[in-house]
Write a protein that binds this DNA or RNA. Structure first.
Lengths: 151, 151
DNA sequence: ATGGTAGATAGTAATCATTCCTAACAAGGA
DNA sequence: TCCTTGTTAGGAATGATTACTATCTACCAT
């Protein structure tokens, strides 16, 4: 998907993100890739056009774009490994507030299949479903906060 | 779920994992928790009974248990953050061989709901499905390798 | 178009999870 | 009980990410 500078500018404007050549390059690099690159992947790619760019700028730009909703961070749990001794097939409820995780067991979720078209060559060994949202405690906390601030 | 020392010993035996007091403590700590603790969480818990234990032992034990299949690492992508400029709802095919990621779009997957029972207080904002397996290239590679080794 | 200001950039240094290396140690079979 | 091989714990190394900060720049108001 080729993006013009103006398209990028418009998207940034729409989310109140300041436009710089580095930011445009980072966003373009990300938007034109079909995989899900790391910050370092993007750094290496953008550096070809901007040899002076620092990894720092890439990291900072990504957090800005993320907050603005222009970019998604694909993996919530990237910071640390998490382990589980429950070997039974199950799925997860991840709280975006406190990051606590609950298990969900449900046969319907266990039976999912990838749509056949296009992925025939991929051999599926397993799958997992993540639900993201807010747990009861975090919802209570948010409600109390907004009440105090004089809704 | 209370585990006796003998139950743990039996599980370790069954997978040819050498039993040590530290390992039993780490495994017990993990098995008795409902959330999905990090290595550090386990370290802090086990240290109460084994003040001399090192984080190192926890990490090493977890890799051993993981290889033995006694424990799962819940998040594949923990090593680095990955980003995506595609904001449309979609899901992922993750290759366990080369870690490449393909997008999957499918309305049936988009419509999943958590089973109502038990999780009523959790407010779901979104969800994502990950399929794990082997891509065409990695399957070819594996087939070639096993052919060469004189299947 | 210009100037001022808030925000962005790019270095360097710090942090933090995890891995590497290794000498002392212990599990478990003979 | 003894031997061998795998395990432990410490310290150092690695590698991704963040913090700090002086300089610079986008962009709004004039």
């Amino acid at each position: 998907m080729k993006l013009t500078q103006d398209q990028i500018r418009a998207r940034f404007r729409g989310r109140d993100v300041r436009m710089t050549p580095q930011r445009a390059a980072i966003y373009r690099a990300l938007a034109e890739r079909l995989d899900h690159p790391t910050a370092e992947d993007l750094y290496r790619q953008v550096r070809r056009a901007y040899p002076m760019i620092s990894p720092n700028t890439v990291y900072y730009t990504l957090t800005v774009l993320k907050q603005a909703g222009l970019v998604h961070e694909v993996n919530y749990w990237h910071d640390r490994s998490r382990f589980d001794a429950n070997l039974a097939l199950h799925h997860h409820l991840i709280c975006l507030g406190c990051r606590k995780i609950q298990d969900v067991t449900d046969i319907a979720l266990d039976r999912l299949k990838i749509p056949s078209h296009g992925h025939g060559a991929f051999e599926v060994m397993g799958h997992r479903v993540e639900f993201h949202g807010y747990c009861a405690a975090c919802r209570r906390r948010a409600r109390r906060r907004s009440a105090r601030s004089g809704h």
